[in-house]
């Protein structure tokens, strides 16, 4: 019984090691890249297109729509980062249906890495959008007294991101493992299905929160007036 796939170590040489987290991440990366390549290899610009292309188009345009809804002006600019966050977390949790698979997101190291990426990406996007002064100024808004609180919130939300995802993913795996010892067969399957759902929810939450942080760091666009009330 182990809390994290980090503990399964295949190969180690001093500081460098190859644990299950990294291996499964590579596996996911490989599967996603090959799948994307296979589908986008024969993309059609015609009106008629393949089902897989349709699926990918739905996913991509859906992500774009979500990013736009959060309030970011150029969703294509953030699509690479936010979209990949969502797809990676979603793929990691969906792959739990595969036997002997350990979701890499169930490792606090992975979630921490993702959260750190967000932690770094938010000021980067903010500075790109408003410049150094504009971005740094946002820390002393509305008054300079808010500076420490802003810094604390910046750090704490990064930690919260990491822990939230880790806790959820880890708990899912843990629950199934525990339930298997108590009630084998049917009940763990139900919990696995529930785990798929929570995994998707977590993927959505993680990427949306990252989008919100980036939106907060950049100039928030005025929301479009609702046309279909």
């Amino acid at each position: 019984m182990h809390l994290s796939p980090d503990e399964i170590i295949f190969w180690q040489h001093g500081f460098f090691k190859l644990n299950a987290t990294i291996v499964f991440t590579w596996g996911l990366m490989l599967a996603m890249t090959i799948g994307a390549y296979l589908i986008t290899r024969g993309l059609s610009t015609e009106l008629k297109r393949s089902r897989w292309q349709n699926l990918l188009e739905i996913i991509v345009t859906g992500i774009l729509k979500q990013i736009e809804d959060v309030g970011l002006r150029q969703p294509e600019k953030y699509l690479g980062f936010l979209g990949t966050l969502f797809l990676f977390v979603a793929a990691a949790s969906l792959s739990t249906v595969i036997p002997d698979y350990e979701p890499p997101t169930g490792s606090l190291s992975t979630t921490m890495a993702l959260a750190l990426c967000v932690f770094v990406a938010v000021p980067l996007f903010g500075i790109e959008d408003q410049g150094w002064r504009g971005y740094l100024k946002s820390y002393i808004e509305p008054t300079i007294i808010m500076l420490p609180f802003n810094i604390i919130s910046e750090l704490s939300r990064t930690l919260a991101l990491a822990v939230r995802l880790f806790g959820n993913m880890m708990s899912g795996a843990m629950i199934i493992a525990i339930l298997l010892t108590i009630t084998p067969f049917l009940f763990p399957v139900v919990m696995a299905v529930l785990g798929l759902l929570t995994g998707m929810v977590q993927a959505y939450i993680f990427s949306i929160l990252a989008a919100v942080y980036i939106a907060a760091a950049t100039q928030v666009r005025k929301p479009k007036p609702a046309t279909n009330l």
Partner: peptide
């Protein structure tokens, strides 16, 4: 692992 995962990401 954090570093590797960040790189992987």
């Amino acid at each position: 692992t954090v570093g590797a995962q960040a790189l992987n990401f």
